[in-house]
Design a binder for these strands. Structure first.
Length: 270
DNA sequence: CCAACGACATACGCTACAGT
DNA sequence: ACTGTAGCGTATGTCGTTGG
């Protein structure tokens, strides 16, 4: 409804979906666990790659890699608060109406669940958690209700800033598409959406582009080989030319010597 | 081993804007 | 005009690395 108005400022649904799909493939990156020297480099590269893809989206906003990093950070923060509020509401707290998690939020939670579990252990025992993070999110590991519960236990500190999380406009990323699901329905088929059709199409197009580029590289290599061959022939021709010039110079020298000798003899004869 | 440092994530406050 | 939310700026916290 307000898509055009908000296009320059708001992150569109497609962009958030892309971010979450990207994070599903890079779980440590999503949770901010890339902290070692090399990992930080990887993180930066991934943010640049992701920012480039997101900025190529037709709608939505444009950000730098730092801007998208900040957005993801805020997204995670809001999601945490929302889950905590939903948990409290479920427990019977008299909270104002909170929209249930969207499919995208549940998907993000599935990605970040192990990470939140790790934070919980760290806070509780004040030492590094032994829980292994998922190398990547797989369909069979999508147990959102477990993650919601385990995560929400970590939120012992006060969260006085109610963000709610969901937008009411259909244009905003977190709610557009009306993808709300009943939070009590743990068997909703959202696992089918882990790798959506549009992402598969994008990947196909990228693969096609890579193929075209590879073929162009191959053609360029062939042309380069032919150029090298021609240069070699040219060099050989130049060498022969130089040899011929050298031979010619020697012949001229001999002729000159002969002429000089003959000239001296004629002088003596006179 | 430990303090200093840097890089990054998180939390919080503020502003802008859309909806009512 | 009021309210709620997205997005941004910045202070603070956390963690890994480095040098003494």
């Amino acid at each position: 409804m307000s898509e055009i108005k908000s296009q320059s400022r708001l992150v569109c649904y497609e962009q958030v979906k892309y971010i979450i799909d990207f994070m599903a493939q890079h779980v440590d990156f999503a949770s901010g666990n890339l902290r070692s020297l090399e990992a930080r480099h990887t993180s930066k590269r991934l943010w640049e790659e992701l920012a480039r893809m997101l900025n190529n989206c037709r709608g939505g906003t444009r950000k730098t890699s730092d801007g998208w990093s900040k957005y993801w950070s805020d997204f995670k923060n809001k999601l945490k608060k929302k889950v905590w509020l939903l948990k409290r509401k479920k427990a019977g707290s008299s909270l104002k109406s909170i929209r249930p998690l969207t499919i995208l939020e549940k998907r993000a939670l599935a990605i970040l669940g192990p990470y939140y579990e790790k934070i919980k252990c760290r806070k509780r025992y004040n030492k590094p958690a032994s829980i292994e993070l998922h190398p990547e999110v797989k369909l069979e590991s999508f147990h959102e209700t477990i993650h919601v519960d385990s995560f929400s236990k970590t939120q012992n500190e006060s969260n006085d800033r109610l963000s709610g999380g969901d937008d009411q406009s259909n244009d905003s990323a977190e709610s557009s598409g009306g993808e709300y699901i009943n939070e009590n329905d743990s068997n909703t088929p959202d696992r089918q959406n882990i790798y959506p059709q549009w992402l598969i199409e994008v990947e196909k197009k990228r693969a096609d582009a890579e193929l075209i580029r590879a073929k162009a590289e191959e053609r360029r290599a062939l042309v380069s080989a032919k150029n090298a061959e021609a240069a070699l022939l040219q060099a050989e021709a130049l060498k022969r030319l130089a040899d011929a010039a050298s031979t010619q110079a020697e012949a001229i020298m001999r002729i000159a010597n002969v002429l000089e000798t003959r000239g001296q003899r004629d002088m003596l004869a006179l």
